[in-house]
Simulated scan of single mutants.
Amino acid sequence: MKSQIAAPRYSFTVRLSSTRRGARLARQLVLSQLDMWGFPYGSPIAEAAAAVAAELSINAITHGRTRGRDFGLNLTRTTRTLRIAVSDTRPDRLPPEPGTLDVPPPDADGGRGLLLVDSLAVRRGCDVRDAIVKTIWAELALTQE
């Protein structure tokens, strides 16, 4: 019988305060972790992942915050993809489905974050684990330079 060898898999998980400082730290931790995984600072995948993590984290503290609760950041790397997942404590507030977003007017102050995520990611989704936690995730295609 031929055995199958699983693709190498790496993961990183951290909980952060639901503040702007926590969202900034999420971005920096993504850059640091990717550098350790062989995607150096300034590389296209590191910059894209940092942008996606920043947007998902800002959304978690803006739309998914519950007083006194943190948000979670998880990175999972396989040979082909990097999944960036951010969990918050507002499963009652779901994001729009991918492909359903309208471009906001030029003078609008917001509404572009998930458009940016959708432009960088190959897939995006939302999982509601229970009555307390939801996770928004995005997957980026990996190409080693």
Results as ranks from 00 to 15, higher is better:
residue 2 K to N: 12
residue 3 S to D: 13
residue 3 S to F: 14
residue 7 A to F: 02
residue 8 P to K: 04
residue 8 P to Y: 11
residue 8 P to H: 13
residue 9 R to A: 09
residue 10 Y to Q: 11
residue 11 S to E: 15
residue 11 S to K: 03
residue 14 V to F: 01
residue 15 R to Q: 14
residue 17 S to Y: 04
residue 17 S to K: 08
residue 18 S to T: 09
residue 20 R to N: 10
residue 22 G to K: 07
residue 24 R to H: 13
residue 24 R to Y: 11
residue 25 L to E: 15
residue 26 A to P: 10
residue 26 A to C: 14
residue 28 Q to W: 10
residue 28 Q to S: 11
residue 29 L to E: 06
residue 30 V to A: 02
residue 31 L to D: 03
residue 31 L to P: 00
residue 32 S to R: 14
residue 34 L to R: 03
residue 34 L to E: 02
residue 35 D to W: 10
residue 35 D to V: 06
residue 37 W to G: 04
residue 38 G to M: 04
residue 41 Y to S: 11
residue 41 Y to H: 08
residue 42 G to Q: 12
residue 42 G to M: 06
residue 43 S to F: 05
residue 50 A to I: 00
residue 50 A to P: 00
residue 52 V to Q: 07
residue 54 A to N: 11
residue 55 E to Y: 01
residue 57 S to A: 15
residue 58 I to Y: 07
residue 58 I to H: 12
residue 59 N to Q: 09
residue 60 A to H: 05
residue 60 A to C: 11
residue 61 I to E: 03
residue 61 I to A: 00
residue 64 G to D: 01
residue 64 G to T: 07
residue 64 G to E: 07
residue 64 G to W: 05
residue 65 R to Q: 07
residue 66 T to F: 07
residue 69 R to Q: 13
residue 69 R to P: 00
residue 70 D to P: 08
residue 71 F to V: 04
residue 72 G to C: 03
residue 76 T to F: 07
residue 77 R to A: 14
residue 77 R to G: 14
residue 78 T to F: 05
residue 78 T to E: 06
residue 79 T to F: 03
residue 80 R to L: 06
residue 81 T to D: 07
residue 84 I to N: 06
residue 86 V to C: 02
residue 86 V to W: 02
residue 87 S to V: 05
residue 89 T to P: 00
residue 91 P to K: 05
residue 91 P to W: 12
residue 93 R to S: 03
residue 94 L to C: 12
residue 94 L to P: 05
residue 96 P to K: 10
residue 96 P to G: 00
residue 97 E to G: 00
residue 100 T to R: 13
residue 100 T to A: 09
residue 100 T to K: 11
residue 102 D to I: 09
residue 103 V to D: 12
residue 104 P to A: 10
residue 105 P to W: 04
residue 107 D to F: 11
residue 108 A to F: 11
residue 109 D to F: 08
residue 109 D to Q: 11
residue 111 G to C: 08
residue 113 G to W: 05
residue 114 L to H: 03
residue 114 L to Y: 07
residue 117 V to P: 03
residue 118 D to G: 08
residue 122 V to K: 05
residue 123 R to D: 13
residue 125 G to D: 02
residue 126 C to S: 08
residue 126 C to K: 01
residue 127 D to E: 15
residue 127 D to C: 05
residue 127 D to V: 15
residue 129 R to C: 06
residue 129 R to V: 12
residue 131 A to V: 10
residue 131 A to L: 10
residue 131 A to E: 14
residue 132 I to F: 08
residue 136 I to S: 13
residue 138 A to F: 07
residue 139 E to W: 04
residue 142 L to A: 07
residue 143 T to W: 01
residue 143 T to N: 04
